[in-house]
Amino acid sequence: MSGEKDLNILLQNMEPVLNAGEYVFCTVENLNQVPDLEKILFFFRESEAVTIVLEKNIADEWSLNYSYISSWITLNIHSSLEAVGLTAAFANALKKENISCNVVAAYFHDHIFVAKKDAEKAIEALYTLKNN
């Protein structure tokens, strides 16, 4: 199944879910520096370093540096990787509330990382978008 492409259906049926925990973005030179790959939520290789995202308590345990503590919101609707406009729609809804977001599009769902202090406000903005 390739997921939903229709923006109106995506917006009407998305269910924003605030996942438990605090998440941080850290960098390492390579994944050999990571004690346990299973504890990483995701990683992305860039030319400068490897960005890893993981729970804050694990980063603290591993003595990794970070500067941004975020909450993780999952949009529970199977959106197609070819869907047009979903990211723009929720990014604009968050922008109206002065909330920055870091987006990860995975195969089944879109995931949004927002500053921990903005998590509840972000959920409210996403539900307002859904209900309009």
Rank of each mutant, 00 (worst) to 15 (best):
L37P: 00
A119K: 02
Q12Y: 11
F113L: 15
D110G: 06
Y127F: 13
V24P: 01
A106W: 00
L10D: 05
A20H: 09
Q12D: 10
V50A: 02
F43S: 02
N92Q: 15
L37H: 07
D60M: 04
I77A: 06
E48A: 09
A105M: 08
N132K: 13
L37N: 04
K116A: 12
G21R: 06
L41R: 04
N65M: 07
A20V: 10
F43A: 07
K56I: 10
F44I: 01
E97L: 04
A88G: 12
E48F: 10
T74H: 04
W62T: 11
F42S: 01
E22V: 03
I77N: 08
L64F: 06
E46M: 04
F43R: 00
V103K: 05
K95D: 09
P16M: 02
V34A: 02
K56E: 15
I112H: 06
Y66C: 03
F44P: 02
A115M: 02
I52M: 01
H109Y: 09
N76Q: 14
A83I: 03
L86P: 11
F108W: 05
A115K: 08
N8R: 05
C101M: 13
H111Y: 12
M14Q: 09
N30K: 13
K130M: 09
S2M: 14
V34T: 00
E61T: 11
L10E: 08
E22R: 07
L11K: 15
S47G: 04
V84P: 09
E124S: 14
S63C: 06
V114L: 05
K116Q: 14
F42G: 03
A122E: 02
S80R: 12
S63I: 03
Y23E: 12
W62G: 12
D110I: 01
I99N: 03
I77F: 09
D6A: 10
A106Y: 01
F42R: 00
N30Q: 11
I9H: 13
S47V: 11
E97P: 00
N30P: 08
K130P: 05
K39S: 09
I112D: 06
N32R: 15
L86N: 07
T74I: 05
A125C: 01
V24Q: 06
G3D: 05
K116W: 01
D6E: 14
H109S: 01
Q12P: 01
L41H: 10
F25N: 05
F44E: 00
I52P: 00
H111A: 06
A59S: 12
K56Y: 07
N65G: 09
F108S: 12
G21H: 08
L10Q: 11
L81K: 11
Y66E: 10
G21I: 08
Y66G: 07
W72N: 09
F42W: 08
E124R: 08
L75R: 08
D6L: 00
E29T: 13
A91C: 15
C101F: 08
L41Y: 07
L10H: 12
H78T: 13
E22N: 12
L31H: 10
N102W: 10
A115Q: 09
Q33L: 09
K39L: 15
A91N: 13
